[in-house]
Amino acid sequence: MSKNWYPIINYKKCTKCLECVKFCPHDVLFEEDGKPVVKNPNLCVDYCRGCQKGACDFGAISYGGAYAT
C-alpha cells in the first residue's frame, strides 16, 4: 500500500459487523471470508475517516500512509 492515506483494520477489535464495508462509497473495503478487508487502498479519499467515524463503533479502524498521525 503506497497511497498517502488508507484504512488499517485491527482484527483484534473488529467484530466483523461489516458496517465499514457497507458505508464506504469508494470501494476501498470488501467482505472476504466474513471479515472486512482493504482491497483498493488507492481509492481511499485523503482524510475521509468515514469508515472509522461513520461506521465503526469499535475503534477497529486507523489510517496509514504519509498523512497518518
Rank of each mutant, 00 (worst) to 15 (best):
Y67E: 10
V28I: 08
T69S: 14
T69E: 15
Q52D: 10
S2T: 14
V38I: 11
A68Y: 02
A68I: 07
G59F: 02
P25L: 10
K53S: 14
T15M: 07
P36D: 01
V28P: 05
V37M: 09
V21A: 00
K35I: 01
T15L: 09
C51M: 06
F58N: 09
T69F: 13
K35H: 03
S2N: 15
C24Q: 07
Y11P: 04
F30E: 15
N10E: 05
K13V: 03
G64L: 00
L18N: 06
D27Y: 11
C48E: 04
D57F: 12
L43T: 10
C51P: 00
S62M: 08
V38T: 09
P41L: 01
Y11A: 01
C17D: 04
I9C: 02
P25E: 10
A55H: 02
Y11D: 05
D57P: 12
I9L: 03
F23A: 09
K53L: 15
C44H: 03
C17N: 02
G59D: 02
Y47N: 11
P41V: 00
L29Y: 04
E31N: 03
A66T: 15
N4E: 15
T15I: 12
K39R: 14
K39T: 06
V37Q: 05
C20K: 01
Y11E: 00
R49S: 12
N40F: 06
N40L: 07
K16L: 11
C20W: 07
A60Y: 07
K12S: 15
L29A: 06
I9M: 02
Y63A: 06
C14L: 02
Y67R: 13
V45Q: 10
L18A: 01
C56W: 00
F23R: 10
E19N: 11
D57T: 10
N10C: 06
F58T: 13
A68Q: 05
C44L: 03
W5L: 06
P25I: 02
V37Y: 08
P36Y: 02
D27S: 13
S2Y: 15
V45S: 09
K3W: 13
C14I: 05
K39E: 10
I8T: 12
D57Q: 13
L43C: 12
G50D: 08
